[in-house]
Structure formats: structure tokens, C-alpha cells
Design a binder for these strands. Structure first.
Length: 842
RNA sequence: GGGCCGUUAGCUCAGUUUGGCUAGAGCGCCUCCCUGACACGGAGGAGGUCACAGGUUCAAGUCCUGUACGGCCCACCA
């Protein structure tokens, strides 16, 4: 035990000891009932960790540590989510390369030492290798920070969402979905990001308010009459395939079944009725284009309208006019738009409409929500492409109900987060689009045979054998074919796409649990006990994991979903990199110490957004230091004599209070409410130091021959032991340090404190003895404080007036009270009334 | 447009599920104390019309209705 205990250096020292002793290693011989398994969120490896990570991962770690001390074998792996667009972009910039899946793999490839101006095209497999190379460095930095923070992860069980096992599992799960009919391919209008040139899924959308303007276009009705139509996208006029109004709209009922003529292009389009047309919007009749928005898609599909696509994959108008736009004037008008962006096309078409007098008035500016890819900065377009989907209940009422029912089986912490899930599942409007036209992801594991004309036969995909996984169809060859047959008639072609990052992330329980290649491990950890995650990815990660588990295992993948809150900066905004208000977590850990930062994180109620608050970290640091000093004090009395027992009423009272604290803290931690458990432990500890220790100090020193010396020393030790373990999940470093002063093993594998270990003393305890003594000592302190004298000052007299029962309790702490208050005697005067009156004369 | 969460001391938050003494804690602030675990400490003190308006009740921070403000999630862009 050091003379001057300090927090400095504890992190490095104990992190190393834990690592060398494999303190957090998972013992895979344990059965599922003995295991507590955590489906850890794999942080995105595309930069650095921020305070929000420290916050939420600490909260999970407190639960992991608690369960471990309770005797559960904790399965606590860590993954790195390095699969996806953010990494892809970094690799392009870092190495100066770009992925071209048409290129062959070069096993000897080395990137340029310095990125050049022109990005070098390389094969997908080479690109993935560079991604893996770059992310390794980041992952090491992440791991170092997690270790310093004290996460009790088994570091031998890390995974990457792009590593070979993850790719194999992702592909295997996809192929099993395909075999069971849960995955399918379809050519259909798709939300399309023109910057990244990829399809995106509903879960990746966000609405952004954007300025727009209603333009009133004059169509020609069947009788030649004017038919004004309001639209925010006049440039899509050549894509117009119908006009639609509500069936009950008397203004337009006479037109249903007839035709109207588009301005400028002179195309005849049907006037049709549909319930989604809103009589209140615009002129009550809308033009349907292929495709301006998702409502257009609905109308197009349900009303079986013509198809006149004008926007290409690059987001520009295609060179040739769509079918139906074939008059000479129409072709000439379209030629002005060909190759243009929608913005340019809009200006041109508006000019032409004005010229022809076919626009009414000026555009009326509005603000309206526009759909964006969450990572993109241009509005999404809708183009028709061939894509892979996984059925998710968006078009299947039975499946949707089943998924809602499974969501209800989860224990949601906090409970109201379930609403987010229910809303999302109820609002699904289509199946899950899982293919992406990107590169750094898990390849869609199929090839297609090529017919005699060299066209892919999409409905007869070639499937890899199970042992072949993971495959990259752009470099690997399907069974029965030769490499030379790639791309030639009668040969084969690989699917060029990758799977959505969530199509792999949705399998983290399977990846961490090594499903399909280590079934023995998987059955010991699955379904998992807890899924900790943030609320904004309930619609993606949580939902898709539940869906995949539903298909693959027919059950919910976890018992509990612990939804963490966000860190807010002092302006109540979410902390984020883009706002430039992110604090580097490493600096915090160095400045305040890991335990202090953990204390701040663990003080926040589960699921609650929390202000970034240095003040709380300072409090945590103070607590850790107090723990050092209190331990030094208690342990300074040495080992209690053999057979020493707790005999004094005040000692019993303290232990009874401790017992109540243990019981309540245990209950809260079992319910994942680490914050309440911490609050209880803390509150007990401060009262223990300020009241109990001060009261019994003199007796414990034993310099005067009073009874109960041994009782005080035994009680102090019993209490300290339990206190250190109560704090161990929250302050792993300082508790380990203190524990090491009088124990050999680690505190983090020591048993969680119990009421039983406190012995029989708590059974006949009267907790009021300590409460009354604390009240009287406080009154004595108050008198000294008011008189501005030292607490050591001798007191002339103390007279306590109150009911007999309370005086009797007071009498049982008389010796300790006189010693602590420096009072020769404490007079007790019986009187009616509930409260004690304490008169102190100095 | 629909939904969820929040609004309590200068600050950060408990307390609301199940209504019940004079609404709590910590930080900060003020005053004091170098006492043999700790001055990286200790003692004491000041500080709140519980966002607002109604309602239910013997009794409302707590239950009901509405409003405002803050935040979040979702939503078919005419």
C-alpha cells in the first residue's frame, strides 16, 4: 500500500495486467445459461472515436463487468465496421486509387507511394485489400483507446465486417435467403443517388427541406380547354405519362378515361383517377412522370401507365427522347434537354413554356421536403434498375405482423424506444433493397450464365458451393466454368454489385458468434442477452438484425435492446464532427483519468441524452481519490483479530444500510439501470465516510481501552470490501488498485457483494442508531462552524431533547458520539414530539 | 402532417410508473476549519411560484386536457 496513493498511471498498469492475465477472456466451455452475451456495436472505422462512443460503450461495460462478477461468463467481443462507403472514400483519397470491378486481380499490386492526381484504377479484390490495410491502423488506435477506457472486452475475439469470415457469413446468409425465396432479384424503379451512382434503400433516406417552386403548366383538355397543372419539376414534362386526380373530385370526374395533351411535347396522356391524388394540392390534378417521386411509382404501377424515363444513372437527361415523344417539334424540344442536369433542364423548359404561353404566371416559391441519400448531397432520382431485395414485410402483412410481435418480445431500455421500431416496421413501403453499385462491400455471391448472344440469364444465377465462400464473382469463377469464359457468349458474368453494408451488419450476432463455422460456440452465445445501440439506427441495424434472425433462426436475436442516448454540447445540439464541436476522448482520459470519464458516462440514465459535462468528470475523479484514501485508512488498521465479530449497534446499523444498498444496486444493474446502482453506491459511500467513519474513528484506533475496538475494525473491512466491489463496474482502475493492496486476484472476477457476506450483524441491526448519531454529530458540527472554530474544539455540553425511543437509540452510540464530537458528556432529556432538539454549548 | 422524449436551484440532473410531511443531490457560489485516510480535504450556509393555462382530488412536481418552447423519429417531393 503506497504512502501517497495516486490515480496517475493506473490505466496503463492495470490494462497491461488484465491483458497478460487474460482477465476478460471468454471461457467457451460454459453453457448458454452460464453465459452473458453482448452483441457489441462495431464502431465505424472511418476516422476517430468521439465522446459519444466513450459514453455509450462505458454504459455497456458497466453491465458486462457486473454480470461477470455475478458469475456469468461474459461474451463481449468487439467488431470494427469497416465495410462501406466511408472507408471506400478514405481509401480512394489515401492511396489515390479507384475501384474498377472489370479489372483482373493483381496479387503483386502495390499502390503508389504518394497519391497521384489521377486515381489509378484497380480490381475490386485489390481495392478491398487496400481497404483492409488502411483500416488496420485505425483499428489499432481504436483498440488502444478502448483498453485505456477499460472496456472489459475479450480482445482475442475481434472481427471486421469486411474480414473473410464476415464476408463468408454474409454471403452464406444471403444465399440461404435466396434458396428459401426470401431474397429475389427484380428490375424496378429505384431510388438512385446520382453522385455515388448507386441504388439506396428506404432505411438510408432522409428528407431535407429544400426550396422549390410551383410552376403552373397548361395542358390541353380533351375538348381543347386549358387544364392547368401545378408541378415543382416542370423539366419532367417529357416523362409525363398521365394526369391523375382524386376519384371524388367533381372538377375532374368528367375527364376520367379521356386524354389530355402535354404542352411543348404534344403527347397524348390519359386522365386517370387515384385515391392518392390530393384535391387540396396544386390544382388538384397532378402530372404523373416516370419518375418524379415515389408517388409517381405507385401511380405508374397501380394504374399500369406507360414508361418514359428521361433521367440516366448519372442524373442527367438521357440523349434520346423517351418513347411517345416522337413528333418533330417534340424531338427538337427534347434535344434542348438531352445531357442536361435537372436544374439546367428546368430553366430551359420554363423558358420554352413561357415563350409558348403555356405557363401561367410566375413560379410560386415553396419549401418542401426532398428525399436524399443520408450520405449524399444531391436529391435522389428514380431510375429503373435490376436489384436484389430481401423481403422485409413491407409488402407482406403476415411477415410485418410477425416482426412487430418479435419486437414486442424484446426488453426495450428505455421502453418507449419500442415505438420507434413499431413506427418503422409499420411504415415500410417496400422490400429491402440490398444490392449497391459500389465496391468495398461484400460482393453479391452469384454469377449469371451468358446466353448465345452474350446476355446474362438473370433468372438462373450460378451459386457458389458452401466451401467456396467467401467469393468475389469479379475474380472467382463459378463451378463448371473456366476463367476464359468470363464475359463471352455461352460463358458467365459475375454480379458486379456488393451488398448493402447493413446486409452484413445485420449479422453481427452470427459473425461474433461464428455461426456456420463454429456451431459449438454459436449455441453457447446465441440468442444474445443484450444489444446496446443508438436510437437513430433502430430502423437499420436493429430492425435488419431482427429480420435476418427471424429468417435464419426463427427467434429474436437478443433478450434486451439497450438504447443509448446522445451527447449534447452545451447548446443542446448533438455533438458531431461536422459541427466541429467534438472533443477528443483521448485528451479527456488523460486529463481526468479513465475512471472519472466513466463515472460521467455511467451517471447518465439509460437512453437519456446527456450534456457534455466536465464537472461530472471532476466529481468522478474526486470519488476515485476518495476511494484510495478511505481504503488506505481502513486497511491501515491491519488484519482484524481472528474470530472478531460485529458487536456494536452503530456498526450493525452501518452494515444494515450497506446491505440495503447492495440489494437495491443489484436489482438496478440486473435491469440494466447502471446509473441508479452507481448513485446508490456513491451515496452510501459518502455517508459512510462523512458520518460512520468519523463516528467510529476513535474507537477503531483503540488508543483508549473501550469495548468494540475489534467490532469497528471488522465492520470497516467488511464495508470497504463490499464498497470496492460495488464500484468495480464503474471505476475499474481505482478499484483494482485498491483491491490489490489486500488481495491477490483481480477484483473484476471477485464475487459481486452480497448481503450474506456481511454476516449475522445485519439481522438484528437498528439502522436508526446510525441515523440519530449522524443527526447529533451534524448539530455539533454546525455549532462549531457557526462559532468559526476548529472541529477539534472541545464541547462544554450537549443536551439532546426528544422522545424516549430516539434517546435510547442515541444512547447506543454514546461513546462514539462523545469521541467524535469532543464532548465529555451528552445529556438526554425526554420530551414529547418527534424531532430531536440538540443544544450545544462550546 | 403523424408520433416519441423533455422543460424542477446559476449549471448538470434525481424525484412523475403507484398523488401524501417543509421538493432533493452534486457542481458552482458565500463563510469557516491545515482535525493523526484524504487541503486532490473537511464543516456549515444561501439559493426553487417544479415551462404556462385549465381540470380531477381532502391533497398535484406527480393524474387528465390544452398551449408554448427544445430535441428526436417517421411521413406519398404534384
Amino acid at each position: 500500500m503506497p504512502d501517497k496513493p495516486t490515480l496517475d498511471g493506473l490505466e496503463d498498469r492495470w490494462a497491461q495486467v488484465w491483458d497478460e492475465g487474460a482477465v476478460y477472456a471468454f471461457d467457451r466451455s460454459k453453457s448458454r445459461e452460464q453465459v452473458f452475451s453482448i452483441d457489441t456495436p462495431p464502431p465505424t472505422v472511418s476516422g476517430s472515436l468521439h465522446v459519444g462512443h466513450v459514453f455509450s460503450y462505458t454504459q455497456t461495460d458497466t453491465v458486462a463487468r457486473f454480470q461477470r462478477m455475478r458469475g456469468r461468463e461474459v461474451f463481449y467481443p468487439m467488431g470494427w465496421d469497416d465495410n462501406g462507403l466511408p472507408t471506400e472514400r478514405r481509401v480512394q483519397n489515401y492511396f489515390g486509387v479507384r475501384c474498377d470491378p472489370a479489372l483482373p486481380y493483381d496479387p503483386a499490386y502495390e499502390p503508389p507511394a504518394e497519391p497521384g492526381k489521377q486515381q489509378v484504377p484497380i480490381s475490386r479484390r485489390n481495392f478491398i485489400e487496400l481497404c483492409e490495410r488502411l483500416t488496420v491502423t485505425d483499428e489499432q488506435a481504436f483498440e488502444a483507446m478502448w483498453r485505456r477506457l477499460g472496456l472489459s472486452v475479450d480482445w482475442s475475439m475481434t472481427y471486421q465486417t469486411i474480414d473473410a469470415n464476415a464476408r463468408a457469413i454474409s454471403q452464406r446468409a444471403f444465399l440461404r435467403n435466396l434458396a428459401r425465396g426470401e431474397a429475389y432479384m427484380s428490375e424496378a424503379p429505384t431510388l438512385w443517388d446520382v453522385t455515388f451512382r448507386t441504388a439506396v434503400a428506404q432505411a438510408e433516406l432522409e428528407d431535407r427541406e429544400r426550396p422549390g417552386a410551383y410552376h403552373q403548366l397548361v395542358f390541353r383538355g380533351p375538348g381543347g380547354q386549358d387544364l392547368p397543372i401545378a408541378t415543382t419539376r416542370p423539366e419532367l414534362l417529357p416523362a409525363c405519362v398521365a394526369l391523375v386526380a382524386h376519384p371524388d373530385d367533381a372538377r375532374y370526374q368528367p375527364l376520367f378515361g379521356q386524354s389530355a395533351t402535354t404542352p411543348v411535347f404534344g403527347v397524348q396522356v390519359p386522365v386517370v383517377a387515384h385515391r392518392l391524388a390530393d384535391p387540396e394540392k396544386g390544382t388538384g390534378i397532378a402530372m404523373v412522370c416516370t419518375f418524379g417521386d415515389v408517388t409517381d411509382v405507385t401511380w405508374w404501377r397501380e394504374l399500369q401507365l406507360a414508361t418514359r424515363p428521361v433521367i440516366g444513372w448519372d442524373g442527367r437527361f438521357v440523349p434520346e427522347p423517351p418513347p411517345g415523344v416522337d413528333g418533330a417539334a417534340a424531338r427538337a424540344a427534347y434535344a434542348e434537354l438531352a445531357g442536361a442536369t435537372p436544374v439546367t433542364a428546368r430553366e430551359r423548359i420554363v423558358a420554352r413554356l413561357r415563350e409558348a404561353g403555356e405557363m401561367l404566371g410566375d413560379p410560386r416559391p415553396i419549401t418542401h421536403p426532398v428525399k436524399f441519400f443520408e450520405k449524399g448531397d444531391k436529391p435522389l432520382e428514380i431510375v429503373t434498375t435490376r436489384q436484389w431485395y430481401i423481403r422485409n414485410g413491407g409488402r407482406d402483412e403476415k411477415l410485418r405482423t410477425a416482426l412487430l410481435d418479435e419486437g414486442a418480445l424484446l426488453q426495450w431500455v428505455p421502453p418507449h424506444m419500442r415505438v420507434r421500431y413499431d413506427n418503422w416496421v409499420s411504415g415500410l413501403n417496400g422490400d429491402w433493397l440490398v444490392s449497391r453499385q459500389r465496391f468495398f462491400g461484400v460482393p453479391v455471391p452469384v454469377w449469371y450464365p451468358l446466353d448465345d448472344a452474350g446476355n446474362p440469364v438473370y433468372d438462373q444465377p450460378l451459386i457458389p458451393a458452401g466451401g467456396q465462400l467467401p467469393v468475389d464473382p469479379s475474380t472467382d469463377v463459378p463451378g463448371g466454368y473456366e476463367p476464359g469464359q468470363r464475359g463471352v457468349p455461352g460463358g458467365f458474368a459475375g454480379d458486379p454489385d456488393v451488398l448493402d453494408t447493413w446486409a452484413t451488419s445485420s449479422l453481427t450476432p452470427q459473425i461474433a458468434g461464428r455461426w456456420s463455422y463454429d456451431e459449438d460456440l454459436f449455441k453457447r452465445v446465441f440468442p444474445m442477452d443484450i444489444r446496446p445501440q443508438a436510437h437513430e439506427i433502430i430502423r437499420t441495424w436493429l430492425f435488419s438484425t431482427l429480420l435476418r434472425s427471424h429468417y435464419e433462426h426463427g427467434e429474436v436475436p437478443w433478450r434486451s435492446a439497450a438504447i443509448s442516448g446522445w451527447i449534447l454540447d452545451p447548446d443542446r445540439k448533438k455533438m458531431s464532427k461536422s459541427k466541429g464541436n467534438v472533443v477528443t476522448p483521448t485528451d479527456l482520459l488523460v486529463d481526468y483519468g479513465s475512471d472519472a470519464v466513466r463515472y460521467w458516462a455511467a451517471s447518465a440514465r439509460p437512453g437519456t441524452d446527456t450534456a457534455y459535462d466536465i464537472g461530472q468528470m471532476k466529481v468522478g475523479r474526486k470519488l476515485a481519490i476518495k476511494l484510495l484514501n478511505a481504503s488506505k485508512f481502513v486497511l491501515g488498521f491491519g488484519e482484524p483479530a481472528a474470530g472478531a465479530t460485529v458487536t456494536e449497534p452503530i456498526d450493525k446499523a452501518m452494515l444494515a444500510e450497506l446491505a440495503a444498498t447492495i440489494t437495491a444496486a443489484t436489482k438496478w444493474l440486473e435491469e440494466l439501470d447502471y446509473a441508479r446502482a452507481l448513485e446508490l453506491a456513491e451515496s452510501f459511500f459518502w455517508s459512510f465516510c462523512d458520518n460512520y467513519v468519523e463516528l467510529v474513528k476513535d474507537r477503531a484506533y483503540g488508543e483508549t481501552p473501550v469495548p468494540g475496538i475489534a467490532s469497528a475494525r471488522v465492520s470497516l473491512r467488511l464495508a470497504l470490501s463490499a464498497i470496492v466491489r460495488l464500484f468495480a463496474p464503474f471505476l475499474p482502475f481505482v478499484t483494482e488498485e485498491v483491491w490489490s493492496w489486500w488481495h491477490d486476484g483481480t477484483v473484476h472476477r471477485a464475487p459481486w457483494p452480497s448481503v450474506a457476506e456481511l454476516g449475522p450483524a445485519t439481522e438484528d441491526a437498528d439502522p436508526a442508531v446510525l441515523a440519530v448519531a449522524s443527526e447529533v454529530i451534524a448539530a455539533i458540527r454546525k455549532a462549531k462552524s457557526a462559532a468559526r472554530v476548529s472541529m477539534r474544539t472541545e464541547v462544554a455540553s450537549v443536551r439532546v431533547t426528544g422522545p424516549a425511543a430516539r434517546l435510547e437509540q442515541l444512547a447506543r452510540a454514546d461513546g462514539d458520539l462523545r469521541a467524535a464530537g469532543r464532548a465529555a458528556a451528552i445529556d438526554r432529556v425526554e420530551a414529547a414530539g418527534g424531532d430531536l432538539q440538540v443544544a450545544v454549548a462550546l
